[in-house]
Design a protein around this nucleic acid. Sequence first.
DNA 1: AAAGGAACCAACCGCGACTAT
DNA 2: TATAGTCGCGGTTGGTTCCTT
Length: 303
Amino acid sequence: MGRAPCCDKANVKKGPWSPEEDIKLKEFIEKYGTGGNWIALPQRAGLKRCGKSCRLRWLNYLRPNIKHGEFSDDEDRIICSLFATIGSRWSIIAAQLPGRTDNDIKNYWNTKLKKKLLGISPSQRKSQQQSQQQTIQQPFQPSLEAAPPSSSSSSSHESCHTASSKTTLTGLEGFPLSSSDVFNCVHQGGHESYGAPVHYNSLLMFGGSDHQQSCSSSDGNSNQISYGSRDIEAYNEYYSQMGLEAYLFSGVGLEAPLEFGFEDVKPLVFNNNYNNNNGFFNIEDTNSTERGNRNQGRVMYYY
DNA sequence: AAAGGAACCAACCGCGACTAT
DNA sequence: TATAGTCGCGGTTGGTTCCTT
């Protein structure tokens, strides 16, 4: 049985919004609010539109303080940094850029910023496309079982299904938490825990706020795992023993994401080998030699 | 000047998550 | 606990504009 449609498709208008519709929607919401029910809103406002369409129009265009126009260098940098850290979580990235919408950022990334990172000027488009065609011979095959990083044994990486059985996350040898624990920490922590664990050569990054409470494990042991600030030292010590540098960044601040710059994001874009599967992807870049230790050898992101 | 292709961006679609009953 | 309704997100589409030949 299919899903029930959210509205009567035959009786709703589609396509671009007219100025009259915009005014109707804006005035209605400013006067009455959304009422917490977008589905009922168009009828109440006298609009022949789907509720979802109204929501989108309001959020992306009509609501106050929306910023249109050119993105600044700072905004570029933030987008790149966060993309390197969390992938295409546009709503989370948008939350860090006041006035920008997820749709805006997504479009900007797909049409401009990605090319900017690759250094493609309009006049270079064709030759760049040709060379890319030659370079990228095979499309990325979604593989959720990534090879272990160079610092761990190649034979002992673990893979572990999450509670939803949709994603396999490859973990590290001797990792103190199971991969599902990691997954749950990241995905159950709400908006503050946008920072998925990132293994960046010898650097392991963990997202989450200092006041993050705990998150449950799906391994059946129902152990609660806290990764608040008091655990940072424990992690650091553990990874130090393993010869790894562990780094936990905190909250929604940008200090950690800004660890990434254009050079860090380039591999994601140019190799085109990230798996955009529910935000999980892994990247390998065996060529990068800049920035000292961090970029020597294999660079992998675990999401 | 015209045609074709590329770029841009608003809007749509489908699905998972969440909530109310 | 199960189910239906709704929300919100990310990927994709399609119309318009811009650029190149």
